[in-house]
Amino acid sequence: MPAYAAKRFAVALLVLFVVSVLTFTFTNVAVDPAIAIAGEGATDAQIERLRREYGFDRPLYVQYGEWLSGTLAGDFGTSIRQRRPVLTMLAEKFPVTATVGGLALILAFVVAVPLGMVAALRPNSWIDRFALGFAVVGMAMPTFWFGLVLIIVFGVTLHWLPVSGTGTAAHFVMPSIALSYYSIPIIMRLTRAGMIDVMASDYIRTARAKGLLPRTVLFKHALRNAVIPVVAVAAVQFGHLLAGSVVVESVFALHGIGYMAWEALHAADLPVIQAVVVVLAGFYILLVFLSDLLNAFLDPRIRIA
């Protein structure tokens, strides 16, 4: 197990390194930072002076090295537009996105796994059909549209929940629901398929033949094996949730990372764009790493590195 963990961690670091190189290269090729800093109406001479002043005239790999050492020390540079440290901005916005994303993921699991299990145990029953319908609707409905429907029903008509902003816990309810519904179908269908497979397996028959109680068979012997594929996609799902977060944040006017990225892109605010991409990628890679570890814990066959 430690050998396996070390190997996965090394891979994670390597991926993160490649992501940082690609991000830094592509953003610098796409946008000339000197022009972005100089702003509209600047003369060529002014831009050239800025380029030398900031060191943008040096080779890209030298600039990357400088940026990397800064980033590793926790210094993501300064926002061109807001003139504030990027780290401070991240610290402000990240909790909002993490809260919505985390709540959405938990909600998705809490709804999808039991629903998938029940659907698997009673295939073709009314509850299985209901779950399938629920999943199809979730797959078909765009997140922003579902968010707007929630706003109209629970915010405007019923006045149960606040429509926008991040003031109280109640503000996070609708965004989390809107975002979670995107992940529910896939988690539920995977749980159902995994559970049906496992329940038909020889070792479940063995467990019953040993006289184990139905609940032991179900929760100890079946569920653990059934969720292995689900755990593997959970990290990928969280990545989708972070991406979906950009949409949800704009629908509900939450000022999170998504909103910040959107603003930075419009202003060609290079340090912010780089930081957002690298932080989100890092977060995603961390989750994939954790889900690898969890899977290795659940399935001893994976532990052999």
Partner: peptide, 10 residues
């Protein structure tokens, strides 16, 4: 089937 009759997770 001894190959599949034991639970792989325990």
């Amino acid at each position: 089937e001894p190959m599949t009759s034991l639970n792989p997770a325990y």
